[in-house]
Design a protein around this nucleic acid. Structure first.
Lengths: 227, 227
DNA sequence: GAGTATTGTTACAGATTTGTTAAATATTGA
DNA sequence: TCAATATTTAACAAATCTGTAACAATACTC
């Protein structure tokens, strides 16, 4: 469903931070703090993108990069280099080795995220957005189409976002506030009852002939996507 | 069983609020309103998570964060920064310093709680399970479902809260007043007999075929969750 | 065992929450 | 700009939950 990112980083706090934030963003994250291990794991897992620390205890990041770029099977996986100081020379080396992008620590997380997205979009336009499936409901994010039992369903933008959010963790109950925050976002000047109305419309839209209702109401708590 | 959270915050009302709510949630809470003290206490107590105010009288939160992240013994404790205004720059600084997450005051308490849980889940996956189990009774807090012997049970909101509270410390006897305070909360205009009625309803709900009663009455004292 | 205190249970009125519709407002695209 | 769409709010109906009172049952004291 979402892209898989491999992080090679030996500093635990940074690794924790990256993993946490990337996962929050919906990416699958694997990692290694050790160069040798990283190489074999990457070949095995074939992630869509690699974040690679410059400084590692055993193999240096630049070495890893070189090895990877020589391997037919993984040479097309984009790599973002992470280095401690932004010396121009380093930057050049990094890029010459084949790294697709480069960031200097301490880096701005939003910027890193932006670059990750950009790279993923470029390299595998279909990875960032693909399919989410729950029971007989399917969201094709690429075409932004929604199907129930192979029948296409038309949703408004909000309903689409709402469904996309709910499907992230089916069965989990989200409060109206959570939904407002994640689906509506910044625009907090909205009453929570608004959610109800959109839920109703979403229900109507996805409730085709011969199917169970898919949205559960949990009184005084919220809603969840569930049979 | 439950996680220990350290709060560094110099504004008393906020500290009180946080402590109260976190304890209610079942966490052990320690705190300090002073940066220097916080540092030594944290090293001593090794909490599972730190809530760190950005603005402190002596050391700034960001400094504390830096110190902590340099200390081998505590560098892996996740930190949530609390700041007054959500400037993007601040946010970035906060994360670069090693804080795992970040919240802007005034913050939504449920959101904070959600993030705390998320972080704790990452660091200590087994500490904050979203499940509570006592004998053959299981509460899945994520989907807000309750099961007895794998059979799903339907509870009203109050019953659900009540059970959730009782299960925190099975066998412990809670007085009606305690239950009113923790389950009913703000609404103190309720007679203590009300508890009895809800206990009855809860009993009926969780008492399925072939099971022992799970709620014990302790005459002139209160109730407990117990076979 | 009688009498008292405490708890269990039930029914019902009132309160709260949710579902739904329709109308008002905002946004978008031609 | 205007028209088409989308979104929000408001309003009311329906569903569900809650607190209380009344009475029954039980436990406790003497």
């Amino acid at each position: 469903m979402s892209a898989h990112i491999f992080v090679v980083e030996d500093e635990k706090p940074i690794l924790t931070l990256l993993t946490y934030n990337l996962e929050k963003e919906g990416y699958k994250v694997s990692s290694s703090s050790n160069g040798e291990e990283a190489l074999s794991l990457i070949k095995e897992k074939k992630p869509e993108l690699i974040l690679l620390d410059w400084m590692l205890p055993d193999l240096s990041g630049i070495k890893i990069c070189q090895y990877l770029k020589q391997d037919e099977k993984v040479k097309n996986i984009p790599i973002i280099m992470l280095t401690a100081k932004g010396e121009e020379e380093d930057k050049v080396k990094g890029l010459n080795t084949g790294a697709e992008d480069y960031m200097t620590k301490p880096f701005s997380y939003p910027e890193l995220l932006a670059r990750i997205k950009a790279l993923l979009r470029r390299v595998k336009p279909n990875v960032v957005s693909d399919e989410a499936i729950y029971l007989d409901l399917r969201i094709d994010r690429e075409s932004m189409k929604v199907f129930r039992k192979e029948k296409e369903i038309t949703l408004g933008p909000k309903e689409y976002k709402l469904l996309n959010f709910l499907i992230k963790q089916p069965k989990r109950v989200y409060s109206r506030d959570q939904l407002l925050e994640h689906v509506w976002g910044d625009d907090i000047n909205v009453e929570s009852r608004t959610v109800d109305v959109h839920i109703t419309r979403l229900r109507q839209a996805i409730n085709i002939e011969g199917t169970k209702p898919l949205i559960r109401t949990v009184r005084s708590a919220g809603y969840s996507l569930e049979n």
